[in-house]
């Protein structure tokens, strides 16, 4: 094992996801302290451009597995191919984005190579020759400090926490990697896209959520409008999801998505502990609720005690006006 840090870069339809550049920032700091270099790996079909971008981030080597066999996610094939790369690169740490894809692939590769995985990290230190990480547990009700007893270790880093690294002038060599010949007993056969306009909750900079106070599917219309004005993702409380006003994939909380956007706006949400768990590490929280004693106000930076349907029309108009002045 060396002192290098290997980044596993996630792509979507031939473009690197933003979190890949965030991993470069993390890897850079780790490699500097451990006295090693950064390397990166990308797997997919038609990912030459991704490899090219990675090559300009300051890494010393890019591994690129580019093949029609990697068009759709097949856990065994991806894990076996990546394990080959890891064996060759022999890094001190392997970094993934803490996305569904990164966590799933990371777990499978870890078991193959008998490595520990620290998932969902929000901070790290190099201490006593090993890596120490901070990660939320109980969906954010507590923060654990976890030490790798030995290196190498696998870590997945939360998106939107670390600044993305810029591209530089240097160009690292790209090494083509052969796809493992293992059979794909399980594999994705088809991607069913969500609505094109929708913003992914986990990565959104702004999230606008509605709860039982929204009262109906129609009640969500001005919430969707607010989201559109702000370029935000729409979230919901479990009560709104259970009532069938909005898809359950939008649920924020301990048994839904954990989000940490720059701005979280909760409308007609009481602030149950399971909901707070999923959103209270947002940078700025706004709550609109009729009930001055709703627990959500204890988490909110700005609270408005009022009927959300009196607030929303004015808020939407005012935002449109102000944002058009920019």
């Amino acid at each position: 094992m060396g002192n290098n840090i290997l980044i596993v870069a996630e792509e979507r339809e031939g473009t690197l996801r933003k979190v890949a550049y965030e991993l470069v920032t993390v890897a850079n700091a780790m490699a500097r302290e451990l006295g090693g270099a950064m390397e990166a790996c990308v797997l997919g079909n038609g990912v030459a451009a991704c490899a090219d971008s990675l090559a300009q981030t300051g890494v010393t080597q890019v591994y690129c597995a580019d093949s029609p066999a990697l068009q759709h996610f097949a856990p065994e094939v991806f894990a076996a191919t990546l394990a080959d790369v890891i064996r060759q690169a022999a890094p001190a740490a392997i970094l993934f984005g803490a996305t569904g894809w990164g966590k799933e692939l990371g777990a499978r590769v870890a078991a193959k190579l008998d490595l520990g995985v620290v998932a969902d990290c929000v901070a790290f230190q190099v201490e006593g020759g090993t890596l120490v990480f901070q990660r939320p547990i109980y969906a954010g009700k507590a923060i654990a400090t976890v030490r790798a007893k030995a290196l190498p270790v696998i870590a997945s880093m939360r998106p939107n926490i670390f600044p993305p690294a810029p591209l530089g002038d240097a160009r690292a060599p790209v090494q083509a990697v052969a796809v493992s010949a293992v059979a794909a007993r399980s594999q994705v056969i088809e991607k069913v896209k969500k609505e094109a306009a929708a913003v992914d909750l986990a990565e959104a900079k702004v999230v606008v959520s509605g709860g039982r106070g929204a009262k109906s599917t129609e009640g969500f219309v001005p919430i969707h409008e607010l989201a559109k004005i702000l370029g935000a993702a729409v979230g919901a409380s479990r009560a709104a999801v259970d009532a069938g006003w909005i898809d359950y994939s939008t649920q924020v909380g301990q048994t839904g998505k954990t989000v940490a956007p720059q701005l979280y706006i909760a409308l007609g949400i009481s602030g149950a502990i399971q909901h707070l768990a999923g959103m209270s590490s947002s940078k700025v929280i706004v709550a609109v609720n009729k009930d001055p004693d709703a627990p959500i106000f204890q988490a909110a930076d700005y609270g408005i005690v009022a009927d959300m349907f009196d607030v929303l029309p004015v808020l939407n108009e005012e935002l449109k006006r102000v944002l058009s002045e920019k």
Binding site: T145, R147, P292
Partner: peptide, 18 residues
């Protein structure tokens, strides 16, 4: 492979305003 060194409460949020 991993050791949980300690667990802390999440950082407190400054009081908000209504």
């Amino acid at each position: 492979k991993l050791e949980t060194v300690r667990v802390d409460p999440p950082p407190a949020r400054p009081p908000g305003k209504k």
